[in-house]
């Protein structure tokens, strides 16, 4: 006797493209992005919402994609680091450019999550000073401890 795994249909707009998939309801949004759509920019660090490396934008707002199931987001818009600059062959997004210019990473594993969080932070208007940037980036850990340059890069992207 075989048991048919449960699968639910969900439609997501991923980096501007409408995509329809059938997934087991246990699949997190993070796993759907990585395994169903091949978008490996969002990283699976802790998988418990504690490190921020899976950060993506959901309807324009930053979330930890590991702590939510894909089936819960039918009809919604997801932006990953791959969708940030628009044309993959074109210019980097200004926050990506700032991270490169200010050497805001070492190993790079946390970087897509850091950049997505920073893009949201700038949109929210939380780059007033370095302390504010640090507080509003507190959901993103960097085990290489590139924090000083991350703050500098975000401040530069904010025009300071």
């Amino acid at each position: 006797m075989s048991i048919e795994p449960a699968a639910d249909e969900v439609e997501l707009r991923v980096n501007g493209d409408p995509r329809r998939i059938r997934v087991d309801p246990r699949v997190t949004l993070l796993d759907a992005l990585r395994d169903e759509f091949g978008l490996t920019g969002p990283k699976k660090g802790c998988d418990l919402g504690q490190c921020g490396s899976c950060t993506v934008l959901l309807d324009g707002r930053r979330i930890t994609s590991c702590l939510t199931f894909a089936v819960m987001h039918d009809g919604r818009e997801v932006t990953t680091i791959e969708g940030l600059g628009g044309d993959p062959e074109g210019e980097l997004h200004p926050v990506q450019r700032a991270f490169v210019d200010h050497d805001a990473f070492q190993c790079g594993f946390c970087t897509p999550g850091q950049i997505m969080a920073a893009v949201a932070l700038l949109d929210e208007g939380h780059a007033g000073d370095d302390d504010e940037i640090r507080e509003w980036m507190s959901g993103n850990l960097c085990r290489c401890a590139a924090y000083p340059n991350i703050v500098t890069a975000i401040a530069a992207a904010a025009g300071r």
Binding site: G49, G52, T55, L58, R61, R62, I63, T64, L67, T68, A117, A120, L121, E124, W136, S138, G139, N140
Partner: peptide, 9 residues
């Protein structure tokens, strides 16, 4: 409480 990402969920 939590982080900006978690507070959005």
């Amino acid at each position: 409480g939590a982080s900006p990402q978690l507070r959005n969920l």
